[in-house]
């Protein structure tokens, strides 16, 4: 469909979101707990946090939960009964308050899970998810979306994009039929508009020039010595991977007894020492050096080669979350320079 334009006041936006919850659709939006912000199930729209920066945890769990039951099994006399999870029962959800980088990430994450054999759980959740994003008026020192294939006013992956345009008012872009469908119920709350230039209301994001040729350089940098110093302070936790909107590694765990239990899919992280530990005891990634290299290679070399885009949208969450200040912007700049230096004739 062609993009439809509208104008909406902040007050009416809250009414619209209240209407969504009242109408029986599940609403997820940022909510503040202490200093951290999470996408939570919202029943009272007054709880929504309109913080200018991306949330602490990404909205990834809305498509790819940190743990989900794939099937359960139980012994039934001589036979074993297996109950498959039914993806058809997944409810329609509205996700509000995603930033453009989040929406781009949701689209890339869905593409990843649809590659080859489609993952029906992720696919169905994406199908049922309506994404209403807010353009960014502010970026911080960890953001680099404009160098990672997106931008503060990018509508990719969103069904509706709102840009605060001064005076408690939003310029609204309705980008999909799904977005139009949701809005149809709330016709009185917004006015028709015309395409507006919102660029003056958007954040200025500091470019990350090193990212431009980074993937190509990485292709020849597997054996480089840059990784050791770069990863020395990495503690080997999974904070970066778990706040990342695009990290998609998982681990399948069987839980229960041989006669009754469940098969679960849980988030996993390449930063963990056990991630590649073989049954033999051999670990091809014995230290954080190899694990950090894998993280960077996967996002900026393997993903672009396979999908045509990086496994990173420049949201900056990993940099904000890292207890050892492994700042990704800085790492990319430093690794890029280090690799260039080593490969110079």
């Amino acid at each position: 469909m062609s993009t439809h334009h509208g104008v909406l006041s902040h007050q009416n936006l809250l009414k619209l979101l209240s209407g969504i919850t009242a109408g029986g659709m599940e609403l997820y939006a940022p909510r503040k707990t202490g200093q951290k912000v999470f996408f939570d199930h919202i029943t009272d729209v007054r709880e929504i946090a309109f913080d200018p920066l991306p949330t602490t945890e990404s909205p990834k769990a809305l498509l790819f939960p940190r743990v989900e039951r794939l099937l359960s099994f139980a012994r039934d006399g001589e036979s074993m009964r297996v109950d498959d999870r039914c993806a058809d029962l997944m409810p329609r959800r509205v996700l509000f308050g995603t930033r453009p980088c989040d929406a781009v990430a949701l689209q890339r994450l869905a593409e990843f899970f649809a590659d080859g054999i489609e993952d029906m759980f992720v696919g169905k959740r994406r199908e049922q998810l309506v994404v209403i994003s807010l353009s960014c008026a502010v970026a911080d020192a960890d953001c680099f979306c404009t160098s990672a294939g997106s931008g503060p006013g990018d509508g990719t992956g969103s069904d509706i994009l709102l840009t605060a345009s001064g005076g408690e008012r939003y310029d609204m872009e309705v980008l999909t039929d799904r977005g139009r469908e949701v809005l149809a119920t709330f016709a009185g709350l917004w006015d028709e508009g015309s395409p507006a230039d919102t660029s003056g209301y958007l954040a200025v994001v500091e470019p990350l020039p090193a990212l431009a040729g980074f993937g190509a350089k990485l292709a020849g940098a597997f054996a480089s010595t840059v990784w050791k110093d770069a990863s020395l302070r990495c503690l080997g936790c999974g904070a970066c991977a778990y706040v990342c909107p695009l990290c998609s590694c998982f681990d399948i765990e069987d839980e229960g007894t041989p006669s009754k239990g469940s098969r679960l899919r849980c988030w996993d992280s390449c930063g963990f020492s056990l991630f590649t530990l073989h049954t033999s005891g051999h670990n091809p990634r014995p230290t954080q050096t190899e694990r950090w290299r894998q993280r960077v290679m996967h996002k900026f070399s393997y993903m672009p080669a396979r999908f045509g885009h990086a496994g990173c949208v420049g949201c900056g969450r990993c940099s904000r979350a890292c207890p050892a200040d492994m700042n990704l912007r800085e790492q990319i700049t430093m690794l890029d320079a280090g690799i260039a230096l080593q490969s110079a004739p």
């Binding site: 080997g236 936790c237 999974g238 991977a241 778990y242 988030w267 207890p323």
Partner: peptide, 9 residues
């Protein structure tokens, strides 16, 4: 979400 940052730190 069991990132084990507590354990790692």
């Amino acid at each position: 979400f069991k990132c084990y940052a507590c354990r790692s730190a």
